[in-house]
Structures are given as structure tokens and as C-alpha cells.
Design a protein around this nucleic acid. Structure first.
Lengths: 186, 186
DNA sequence: GTGCTCCTATACCAATCTGTCTGGTTACGA
DNA sequence: TCGTAACCAGACAGATTGGTATAGGAGCAC
């Protein structure tokens, strides 16, 4: 067992939360799947809520690293990279573990905007926005802020449509919309 | 009590599910808030799942009627109406009961695509798409299908961003993106 | 060896979950 | 007035929830 028990727990819980949601996934189920003892969990996390926050933090780092790598491998100019985000989305949608956005799910299940889980989930969306923004700022002649806000809408919309309708092609439609926005501004 | 007990139950449950989610809202809580007896509920619905499906059906009809009325009151040409959808969204986002998309939440909490609840929730998204499509088809010179798909992405994206980041302004950004798409096609 | 830390295993707790059962009340129509 | 249908109130069942308590095993440093 190379990874620590804590990491193993977080990774297992991530998969289960992503598949079934937060309330629907019980502590006992996470323990059974991960093969970890209950007291070990409560030794590392003082509550389920704290575990969820750790999961959101882990998934944020993991996903952002994956997204950056995917984008930077397939495109070089900032403009192409902005569009490559949607190509990355499509390949994510086509994995068989895709089940919508874990973070959006967290904000829906813990809707109170001050709830620690909601706050933690919102941080991820900020990270996505910041990444888009960093690419937009490298492209001269753009209203970087407006464009980033619009791209974030396309980004989240593609995820939602792909999930609710089971239509990975939503990513391509979002990309074409993004191209139209770029053309209108550039 | 003018409305039937059944209707009263469905409307109360809609509000609670919208605020707290499905798994987090217990039957007993719905009964306490609505002031209905447990056996009355189980007389009308054979399970919580059946109640949820009734809620999704009710909310679909209610929301679509509201959206149509809002759009048709504020714009006359099909093209203006396509854009007025996003104005309607913004006024929805600014209500103090706005809590993201109930239907998207349903598909996340019941992720299995064959689950009756997931199926029922997806129907609503189809209805939104069909409405957009009906407007797009009245506007000549458009690839109605592609445009509708892109608008649906903007529609869902605006809801998601508005909810996760608490930013009703996402609707206006979506509208500007929609204008760019229209300009590019028209 | 002794102690310390991390882990397992299992029993347990109180609360809550969905759903059932019983028995009584209210309203209304024939 | 009688019957019936809808509803209420509350107890109850069985499973599951998040979380705690207890006892002991395994690996490692001194």
C-alpha cells in the first residue's frame, strides 16, 4: 500500500461521490469499498463534511492538472488553447466514469452559499475561470474578462447538457459557439 | 383548502426539494411543512420516488409556462424572443428562492440514465430545447438545430454559473454570447 | 524489551430514513 | 340517517445514517 490510508480514502470517496452523490453515499459504503476501518477514517477526518471538503480539494487539483496538460499538449497559441478546452471536455465526457460535475453537484446538495462545502466547490469554478482568464489575457485585442465569463458559461453549459442528455457532442457545440465569440471580438 | 391535498403536497415538496435537494429532504419534513398526514401521502403516491416524479412534472409545466409568458410578453420577433430567454433567466436568478436547476440536481442525485427520475428530469431539458428550436425555426437563414443546441448550452451554463458563483449576471453574459452566435449565423 | 503511532475489527449509540398499520374524525351525497 | 371516501394522528417496523467506544495487532524508534 504505497499511498497513505488517507489518500486512499479520499480517492475512493471521490469516485463514489462522483457516481452517486454526497447524501446518497454512506460512510459505511466508502469504508467497505476502500477496505479501511471506520476509526481510521475518523482519525483523519473529524466528520463526513470534512472528508467531502478533502475530496473536493483533491478533485480540484487533479482535474485542473489534467485540464492544463490536455490543453497545453494539443495547442500552442493562447487562442487555440482557449478552444482546446472544449476538446478536452469532450474527451472527458466520453469516459465511462463521466457523471456530470462533482462541484456543481456539491453546490446543489449543499445549497447554502455559506456552507463550507458550497464554498469549497465554488473555489474550483474560480480556478477554472482563472485558467480561462490567464489564456484570454495572453490574446491581445480581447476583452479578456467578458470573454472569460462567456467561456465559463459555455464550459459549465457543456458539462450540464452532456450529462442530462447523455450528449458528449455538447462540447463540440460549445466550441463552435466559442469560435463565434472569438470571431466577433477579434 | 381550495387545492387538493395532492396538489398541496406536490407544491410543498417542490419548494423543499429545490432548496435542499432530494436525498436531504425527508418525507417527514415534507409532511410537517405541508401539514398533511403520512397516510394521505402514501395514498396518493406509492413511494417517495413517485412523489419526486410528480414534482418534476409539476415544476416542468409551471416553469415552461412561466418562461413562455415572460418571453412572449417582452419580445415579438422570433429573434428577439430567442434573446429574451436570457432576460427571463436573469429575473429568475434574482428571485430569493433561486437555487440552481432542480432538474439538473435530479440527474446528479439519480445519475443512472435509466432511472425513472433521471428520465423525467431529462424530459424538461427536452422541453426547453424544443421551445428554443420552435423560435429558431421561425427565423429564416439560420441553422436552427445547431443554434438551438448552442443556446441550450448557454442556457444551462448560465444557470450553473449563476448558482455556483452566486452571479445572476451570468444571464447577461450568456445573452451577449447568444448575440454573437446570431450575428455570426445571420 | 518498551513505548508510540497507526491501523483493524466489532460492538454500539441515538437519530433518522422510508414505508406500514390502526383507529378515529370529518365531510358529503344518496 | 347511513355509507363512503378522504383525511388525520400517532405508533410502529426494519433498515440505515453519522459517529463513538473498546480492545487489540503490526511496525518502528529508542
Amino acid at each position: 500500500m504505497s499511498a497513505s490510508r488517507r489518500d486512499h480514502l479520499v480517492e475512493t470517496a471521490t469516485g463514489l461521490f462522483e457516481r452517486d452523490g454526497f447524501h446518497a453515499t454512506g460512510i459505511d459504503h466508502i469504508l467497505a469499498v476502500s477496505g479501511v476501518a471506520k476509526m481510521t477514517l475518523y482519525n483523519h477526518f473529524k466528520s463526513k463534511e470534512e472528508l467531502i471538503i478533502a475530496v473536493l480539494d483533491f478533485r480540484d487539483r487533479q482535474f485542473m492538472a489534467w485540464l492544463r496538460a490536455q490543453v497545453e499538449r494539443s495547442a500552442n497559441s493562447p487562442e487555440d488553447r482557449l478552444l482546446a478546452i472544449f476538446d478536452a471536455l469532450e474527451s472527458w465526457f466520453r469516459t465511462d466514469t463521466f457523471n456530470g460535475c462533482l462541484f456543481l453537484g456539491a453546490t446543489l446538495e449543499y445549497a447554502d452559499r455559506d456552507h463550507p462545502i458550497h464554498v469549497q466547490a465554488a473555489i474550483h469554478k474560480r480556478h477554472v475561470f482563472d485558467y480561462i482568464m490567464s489564456l484570454a489575457e495572453q490574446t491581445i485585442g480581447l476583452d479578456a474578462r467578458l470573454l472569460s465569463q462567456q467561456f465559463l458559461v459555455l464550459y459549465d453549459g457543456a458539462i450540464s447538457v452532456a450529462h442530462t442528455l447523455g450528449a458528449p457532442i455538447a462540447a463540440r457545440q460549445a466550441r463552435r459557439a466559442a469560435e463565434a465569440i472569438l470571431d466577433a471580438q477579434g
